[in-house]
């Protein structure tokens, strides 16, 4: 499995749609962690610092969980 993954990565054919979903999962996990740590809601900026991902990319990744059927693959359906 690991080898297949590496092969796919090296070929540069990882789809954004899949990667975005992974990012979105990381965002959710980081958010829960920070909320526990601070005992309050946390902002996008705080999550962005924690993960070293820009706020814009966080916004994009969250959309990939909401409505993948719209944002991705529209023309391949």
């Amino acid at each position: 499995m690991g080898e297949i993954k590496r092969f796919i990565r090296d070929d540069g054919i990882i789809k954004v749609s899949r990667n975005m979903k992974e990012t979105a999962k990381k965002v959710k996990i980081a958010k829960e962690k920070l909320v526990k740590e601070y005992g309050r809601e946390v902002t996008i900026e705080e999550i962005s610092k924690e993960l070293s991902i820009t706020s814009e990319d966080i916004v994009l990744s969250l959309e990939s969980l909401n409505a993948p059927e719209y944002l991705y693959d529209t023309i391949h359906q």
Partner: peptide, 24 residues
């Protein structure tokens, strides 16, 4: 299909206000 696009654009613009995920 532009509904999702519109939503992301507004969310990306609003992210300047440093919102929480819930606000967004």
């Amino acid at each position: 299909q532009n509904e999702a696009f519109a939503r992301v654009v507004v969310a990306a613009f609003a992210s300047q206000l440093d919102p929480t995920i819930e606000e967004l």
